[in-house]
Design a protein around this nucleic acid. Sequence first.
DNA 1: ACCTGAACACCGTTCAAGT
DNA 2: ACCTGAACACCGTTCAAGT
Lengths: 216, 216
Amino acid sequence: MARPRKPLLSRDRIVGAAGALVDSEGLEAVSTRRLAAELGVSGPSLYNHFRTKDEILEAVADAVSAKVDLSMFEEGDPRDWREALHDWALSYRAALTAHPHIVPVLARGPGRRPAGLKVADAVFGAMTRAGWPPAQATHIGALMRYFITGSALGSFARGFVDDRTAYDPADYPHLQQAHLLADHQEKVDEGAFGTGLRALLDGLGCQYEAGGYRKA
Amino acid sequence: MARPRKPLLSRDRIVGAAGALVDSEGLEAVSTRRLAAELGVSGPSLYNHFRTKDEILEAVADAVSAKVDLSMFEEGDPRDWREALHDWALSYRAALTAHPHIVPVLARGPGRRPAGLKVADAVFGAMTRAGWPPAQATHIGALMRYFITGSALGSFARGFVDDRTAYDPADYPHLQQAHLLADHQEKVDEGAFGTGLRALLDGLGCQYEAGGYRKA
DNA sequence: ACCTGAACACCGTTCAAGT
DNA sequence: ACCTGAACACCGTTCAAGT
């Protein structure tokens, strides 16, 4: 075939196919050969559009970050910082749980991914505008990311095996219901996320008032 | 060589070498061939002691979990649940940051790893004894894990590239100091962890009191 | 510029063969 | 029981060759 008159591939087509493959079969299913086959092309062709396989996965991750709602952090938005953080966290978590297999890539940090940086920028900007000192605003961006990516990465409930015999009462006296966790996984993880988010925001509220911070 | 009179390998030796390799060169450096070479043995030999490479990594992860201090959750310990949770979180985080490369494996959940299950058991037992209803105790175990593994996995500061030109002021007006984050990485991550942990515990304290819970 | 097949240096795992 | 080498079916990436 050699070079076609119209390019067979584009960065967007590659990212789209890679994302679909990640979603349907997981990160380990993505090999350059497999992905190329999915696109009707031979393996090395991908290297005309991306320098490495990792760059492709970074682009898939960034596409997920781009879906996070940031409107609550805009200058004119009426929500106060607590409410904005709350709504953003829900949107962020929803984006991640819709594409759980790419979360390990996202959890590495924003790196050079534009949408990842946009998120960090929006949070930091909104927190400083709300009166938080820069160091505290940085901490808030970090700790919210810890909590959100941590919750999306290690679904707590899915982390327990669905097998009664794994939990010997002599060894784990308090885990005798653990094998049931996998069943109502979603409810447990959502409940824990909600409880944690509320605690986090309540606690930050205390620190905000104790510090005497207020809107500039 | 064939079968030696004294076994060349043992599960412990394999786990030790794998852990050392993970710590020094990262997860991707661990291949069965490379690990076997490190042990002076041929690749397939490992399969006499572990069923898969993943089982070896699970064992490495469990060795790290085993280092987490759980004494604060023992029945006789004088610490109240808030203080116990606090001290445990610090010990957990210290164990993870000492072996950052294995965290992605740990973050998948306890699975069948004995030390991982011991941790979950201890937290759940202590929270129910403190008066939390079972569902809430489960949530607390989950959300603490989200926060702790999230913080160890995606070092926030290391997540930003150390390159001024990556942060165009037009795109990211609030990230003009971001390239400095990598420098005082440890301080930022520790600060954010401390801020988040305090907020989490303060917030949980509010919920505890609002719920009217108390020690059985 | 953009695709191809061949090639390089790897993988995890299985298995028959050795003692 | 516990090690070996050979083999299978894969990897990511490079590169010369084609148009």
